[in-house]
């Protein structure tokens, strides 16, 4: 039950020292560009950039190694699924067909399909280092302040902070509840029939939800008493003004994004073909 989570560790690196808001803006711009472009050249450049930034950040391999396993499995399954469902998707996208070898039935591996799936792989690969980095190198205390800074309503921004604050507490509740449920004989494993398992999970969810509703009441009264939400604006203890390096980082990223868009749509198509 004690699953590992990705967590922030304090460290001295150029990435860590950027303000949370700057990192948030960079991450959003980065993800958007990676979503939009399908241009192999852009994606390769972005991948190299993201790996370089990852290097600079000095994040330790052990801090994220365990998610790579999840990512890899997901990656493989997804690629297998794409091929199974649509072995000739690449041919449709690029409009040509170069057969490599035949597998049987409707399954033929084409160069276009390989290239197409290579591009999909690149698209993930470009976002993942930046996403990991955003999480590992940004102090969660800065999340809410950063969201508010980029224009999110401060109350909504604060709810993100509350979620982060109470995830460990809720996990502990969930553990305690499911332990005591198991002691009473509630079985959630495959040994039980599905219909019984569904009923059993309700016996764990109900106490969890009811005690969470109670928790919501307690926290709301505490926040009322401490003057939350009374003003139009609110300041942040952890908020930081933008520094020169923040402006430089955001400037670089925005120009990269602009360049990506121009290169991608220069010939009127999202896709870049080598065929």
């Amino acid at each position: 039950m004690r699953a590992r989570m990705l967590t922030f560790t304090r460290q001295d690196s150029p990435v860590h020292s950027l303000s949370g808001a700057a990192k948030l803006i960079c991450f959003i711009v980065w993800s958007l560009s990676a979503m939009i472009t399908y241009d192999t050249r852009c994606l390769i450049v972005m991948l190299l950039v993201s790996l370089a930034v990852f290097r600079i950040s000095k994040v330790k391999f052990a801090d994220y190694a365990f998610v790579l396993y999840f990512i890899l499995i997901f990656f493989l399954l997804n690629h297998l699924a794409i091929f199974l469902f649509s072995p000739l998707e690449g041919t449709q996208v690029y409009g040509t067909r170069h057969d490599l070898f035949h597998l049987g039935g409707r399954y033929t591996v084409t160069a276009e399909q390989v290239f197409y799936q290579f591009n999909i792989a690149l698209k993930y690969a470009v976002v993942i280092p930046m996403a990991l980095l955003f999480l590992l190198a940004t102090d969660p205390s800065e999340f809410a302040a950063s969201l508010n800074r980029i224009g999110v309503n401060y109350k909504i921004a604060y709810s993100v902070s509350l979620a982060l604050r109470y995830i460990p507490d809720i996990q502990r509740d969930y553990e305690n509840i499911s332990f005591s449920a198991q002691a009473r004989g509630i079985d959630l494993s495959r040994r039980e029939k599905l219909s019984q398992r569904l009923k059993n999970i309700v016996s764990i969810l109900l106490p969890l939800i009811l005690s969470s509703i109670e928790r919501i009441e307690k926290i709301s009264t505490a926040m009322e008493l401490r003057g939350f939400g009374s003003g139009r604006k609110r300041t942040w203890y952890t908020g930081r003004p933008f520094s020169l390096s923040d402006y430089i980082a955001m400037g670089l990223l925005l120009s990269l994004a602009a360049a990506t868009l121009i290169v991608t749509f220069y010939d009127g198509s999202r896709f870049y073909s080598i065929f």
Binding site: A3, I156, L162, A163, Y166, Y174, I216, M223, G229
Partner: peptide, 29 residues
């Protein structure tokens, strides 16, 4: 629209979503 109670409900609800999203999946077969 956004009373303090709803804000807190969003925070706690999101935390629950995270925990159940990770631990609360049951295989169907």
């Amino acid at each position: 629209l956004l009373s303090i109670r709803s804000i807190v409900a969003v925070g706690i609800g999101s935390a629950l979503f995270v925990i159940l999203g990770r631990f609360g999946s049951i295989p169907t077969g």
